[in-house]
């Protein structure tokens, strides 16, 4: 990139722009901070390296899929195949990890599968102009079927050292997340990244201004696939084996986190920091409810209510101000 890059070398406009972008998610940040405070109060063990890394490990996969969902929603798409893609990543990791190529080969296979599946979905949606919701819904069956073919029943094996490295007592997950956020910042500074918001907000205007709309959208699908299979790899490392249906809950949760984070359905609206904060809120909420002794299914009820509340409250507030 050239020296006048807007992200790498802060111009006088950088911080005002960031403040502007934070405006929509400030309330969310306050709620997240409050929930984290409650969690830390209930569970003082959180405030140690071990507690923090354990929490980051439980949060990490959700953060990844929320980013995967948010990047597509920013382009005006949606991915209902995220759960299936996570499962596929998990089973590929569990079956290739102990193979001849070892961990590097498995990571490469998982990354390649994610990028490839994402790119194919993107090509179908963008080039053939089919609605994303249906393509990814049908795609979830195809990808889920592939996961079942790779590993018909839970099994496979992840070497213990690999699980210990990713999901042991060290804050590797937190570091990885920081690296991924940094990579996202860098991506936003590339031509494709810059096109992302433009392609989502107004594709026709963006196209006529010379923005590579199609390429930006297909790249977004590929990155989304990569993040999803990456989450699958991590889940496999956490559980030590592969499960062809382990990812199912991630589809809804990723949408919930992105929406909580203020990412709009119509494209071009929202921020990745919002989506990540949304995923943090969901996972803190689950942990707090678990700690308070709620039955696991009560999570569903609470989650449904919280999502509606989080989306509806700003609307009601806006109307109150207008009246």
């Amino acid at each position: 990139m050239s020296g006048s890059d807007p992200v790498l070398s802060p111009s006088p406009l950088y911080w005002p722009v960031q403040r502007q972008r934070n405006r929509g998610v400030r309330a969310l940040f306050c709620v997240v901070a409050a929930f984290v405070a409650i969690y830390a109060y209930l569970f003082p063990g959180l405030l140690s390296i071990g507690g923090l890394s354990k929490f980051c490990q439980s949060w990490f996969p959700l953060a990844l899929v929320s980013m995967a969902q948010a990047i597509l929603m920013l382009t005006g798409g949606i991915n209902l195949a995220i759960g299936a893609t996570v499962s596929l990543g998990a089973v590929i990791a569990a079956t290739t990890m102990s193979g001849p190529l070892g961990a590097p080969g498995a990571i490469a296979a998982v990354a390649f599968a994610g990028l490839g599946i994402g790119a194919i979905c993107g090509l179908i949606v963008v080039r053939l102009r089919l609605p994303a919701i249906i393509v990814t819904l049908a795609g979830s069956f195809i990808i889920g079927g592939m996961a079942l073919l790779v590993l018909p029943r839970p099994g496979g094996e992840i070497p213990a050292w690999f699980s210990d490295f990713l999901a042991g007592g060290t804050p590797v997950a937190a570091l990885l997340l920081a690296l991924i956020v940094l990579a996202w910042k860098l991506y936003l500074a590339t031509p494709l990244g810059l096109s992302l918001y433009a392609a989502g907000e107004n594709p026709v205007a963006a196209y006529r201004s010379g923005v590579p709309v199609d390429a930006a959208r297909i790249a977004a699908y590929a990155i989304s696939g990569l993040l999803s299979t990456g989450a699958g790899l991590y889940v496999a490392a956490q559980t030590g084996s592969g499960d062809p249906v382990i990812g199912q809950a991630f589809t809804l949760n990723s949408i919930a986190a992105a929406v909580l984070g203020g990412v709009g359905f119509l494209g071009g609206h929202g921020t990745m920091r919002g989506a990540i904060a949304g995923s943090l809120l969901l996972s803190v909420m689950v942990n707090v409810m678990f700690f308070l002794g709620f039955p696991p299914v009560a999570q569903y009820v609470a989650q449904g209510l919280i999502i509606i509340g989080a989306v509806a409250l700003p609307q009601i507030g806006a109307r109150g101000r207008r009246a």
Binding site: L252, I255, Y300, V301, Q303, G304, L305, I307, I308
Partner: peptide, 9 residues
């Protein structure tokens, strides 16, 4: 979707 989640619970 939220309604479906709620009902499922």
């Amino acid at each position: 979707l939220a309604m479906a989640t709620f009902l499922q619970g």
